[in-house]
Design a protein around this nucleic acid. Structure first.
Length: 637
DNA sequence: GGTCTCTTAAACACGC
DNA sequence: CGCGTGTTTAAGAGAC
């Protein structure tokens, strides 16, 4: 039902490693469907006059915006400084080489992705619900004001280039290319400007940002773009150079019009200019697109602010002084409104134990809503499947890992619906599947089914992962094949499984090499990742704001660390095969707590005695402890 | 740089 | 012969 439609939808947006082509195909393939839903929207939509009103407002807003941009509010000097740097990397350049949708989804923690899904779903729902004219109009007005104010602020500080689109595009790049692309396609192409406006509305509403829109991180987007370039791949650098200005236009790159959703081919600048004037003149559509982009920008800026704050907290927690405010950091302080963002200094006086990031985070939008609606509307797809973007293991001390059970329990819906590769090894998954079964044994086929049932990701490329599953079953001694009456079943030899662990370093996370590099490049990782992270700050916040996860700083670890079953140790030691199937939510939340601190100990010396200590806070009978890993099972369903 | 782990691909065997 | 299952080898890559 839901799941199916979800996965199907996801599948319809195949993405290749090549971001661009994936985007294209996405629009092509999904076009029909999208159109369909659009139709619904149209149907439910308002009276004509309202429509006109909206359009007029949008147009007006955009005009004002453009006028401001054109009226030289920004100082030429500053602009020059920014301009070259900021020449946006085209999506075409960035997507394929720096980050593919898959990569993006992979660097993000499930919660983040989940939140993103929710966000998009919210957007879709918004569309489907169609009417909210009053609220919408109010928002329009508010948006106008805020946007103007925002632009003015940025311009005053010389942080915004003359071409508004430059900033926009920068941010655009910070978002999942495919998402944006789709959004833009919808807005620019088939959709009427009214729909575009609704898109904007959806964006806005989905973020609960209405009351925080006053926060405009200075030039965040600019920096993001800048760093994306800096850390970018080979061919982007050129665009940083001066030669730029001569033949470049923020909306033109690689022979393509970079107007969101356009991609028209233009051989030269002249042709591009012509195209720009013809196709993207100041009309309703362009205006609507512009407005959407504004929303995107605002959204991202807010998210960046939040993410920045979190970073500060993280660093504070790790006692890492935000050394030199690298460009990446700078924008962090941009909090023009003190309410939401604090400066590094104020927020976390050095060394201070500071509160968990989220604590300071005022907004906690998603996650409580209809949690994880079918992610159908989303396309986190990642396919690609080419090895290019294959999974990459990321080193992560086990102590920072989250047990597979917890992870799955937390994000079961997410994995079920989103085509996201779970951050577990095959062995972990197989083991989990087996232990989760009533008899703790499964046939190969049942294992297959478990995979497909639990993970949208494993609903495709079956040959590949099934082969991997078989391979793992055979390879690892921890999986024992038992001849059964009706065939062979696989069981788990926990002892063996644990033996397998010692050489810590199992966390398997799927990150692209490029991203990993970016991430590890110290604070510099701000570039690309920052972009995406910022774009998705909201999502992670949602997790952080989850009470059960906030109780300990360690909870932070759950966010991005690739996991493997750390807790398995615990389980293993105690588990003698019994496993109580159900667990109350309380117990569950307990479980979450329990794993945090303890894991470290148990990792290194996993004596049983320690386990007792580990679970100290909750006197769980061994059986229940055993559940730690298994319980999620129940939650999964 | 060597080793370990994991993933993926592929060849091969075996039984139905 | 085709298919599912199971085993094994090898290559590539990240982490330590």
């Amino acid at each position: 039902m839901m799941v199916e439609s979800a996965s199907e939808t996801i599948r319809t947006t195949p993405s290749n490693q090549n971001g661009i082509s994936s985007l294209s195909s996405q629009s092509d393939g999904g076009g029909g469907r999208e159109g369909g839903s659009k139709g619904d929207t149209n149907g439910e939509i308002s009276p004509v006059d309202l429509l006109h009103l909206q359009q007029q407002q949008a147009l007006q807003a955009a005009r004002q915006f453009l006028l401001q941009q054109a009226s030289g509010l920004n100082s030429p000097g500053n602009e020059l400084k920014q301009s070259p740097v900021q020449v946006p990397v085209s999506m075409a350049m960035m997507s394929p080489q720096m980050i593919t949708p898959q990569q993006m989804q992979q660097i993000l923690s499930p919660p983040q992705l989940q939140a993103l899904l929710q966000q998009q779903q919210a957007l879709m729902l918004q569309q489907q619900l169609g009417t909210k004219q009053l609220a919408f109009q109010q928002q329009l007005i508010q948006m106008q004001q805020l946007q103007q104010q925002h632009i003015l602020n940025l311009q005053r500080q010389g942080l915004v280039p003359l071409q508004p689109t430059a900033t926009m595009q920068s941010l655009q790049q910070a978002m999942c290319p495919s998402d944006l692309q789709q959004l833009w396609k919808e807005v620019s192409g088939v959709q009427s400007s009214e729909e575009a406006l609704k898109q904007a509305e959806g964006l806005d509403l989905s973020t609960n940002s209405s009351n925080s829109t006053s926060v405009f991180p200075k030039a965040a987007s600019t920096h993001i773009a800048l760093h994306s370039l800096a850390n970018g791949q080979s061919h982007t650098p050129k665009r940083d150079s001066h030669e730029e200005h001569a033949s470049s236009h923020p909306l033109y790159g690689h022979g393509e019009c970079k107007w969101p959703g356009c991609e028209a081919l233009c051989e030269d600048m002249g042709q591009f200019i012509k195209h720009l004037n013809n196709e993207h003149a100041l009309d309703d559509r362009s205006t609507a697109q512009c407005r959407v982009q504004m929303q995107v920008v605002q959204q991202l800026e807010i998210q960046l602010a939040k993410e920045s704050e979190r970073l500060q907290a993280m660093m504070a927690h790790l006692h890492m002084r935000p050394s030199e405010p690298k460009p990446f950091n700078q924008p962090l302080n941009l909090a023009s409104s003190g309410s939401l963002i604090k400066r590094d200094s104020e927020a976390y006086p050095e060394g201070l134990p500071h509160p968990p990031t989220s604590a300071a985070t005022p907004i906690t939008p998603l996650r409580q809503g209809p949690s994880v609606i079918s992610s159908s509307s989303l396309h986190t797809h990642s396919h690609s499947h080419t090895h290019g973007v294959g999974p990459i293991r990321r080193r992560n001390s086990d102590k920072y890992c989250t047990p597979i059970a917890s992870e799955l329990a937390q994000n079961c819906e997410f994995y079920k619906n989103a085509d996201v590769r779970p951050p577990f090894t095959y062995a972990s998954l197989i083991r989990h599947a087996i232990l989760e079964s009533p008899d703790r044994q499964l046939t190969l086929n049942e294992i297959y089914n478990w995979f497909t049932r639990k993970f949208a990701y494993f609903r495709r490329n079956t040959a590949t992962w099934k082969n991997a599953v078989r391979h793992n079953l055979s390879l690892h001694k921890c999986f024992v094949r038992v001849e059964n009456v009706k065939g062979a079943v696989w069981t788990v030899d926990e002892v063996e499984y644990q033996k397998r662990r010692p050489p810590k370093m199992t966390g398997r996370c799927v990150l692209s090499p490029t991203l990993v590099k970016n991430m590890i490049s110290g604070l510099g990782f701000g570039s690309l990742n920052a972009s995406y992270q910022a774009a998705l700050a909201e999502s992670s916040l949602s997790l952080l704001n989850s009470p059960s996860l906030l109780t300990s700083p360690a909870s932070l670890n759950m966010l991005h660390v690739g996991h493997d079953d750390v807790s398995s140790t615990v389980e293993q030691v105690n588990s003698n095969g019994s496993c109580s199937p159900t667990l109350s939510p309380q117990q569950y939340s307990h479980q979450v707590h329990v794993k945090e601190e303890p894991t470290e100990l148990e990792e290194d010396s996993r004596p049983v005695s320690l386990l007792a200590g580990v679970t100290h806070s909750l006197p769980l009978p061994s059986d229940e402890r055993d559940l730690e890993e298994d319980l999620p099972t129940e939650e999964l369903e």
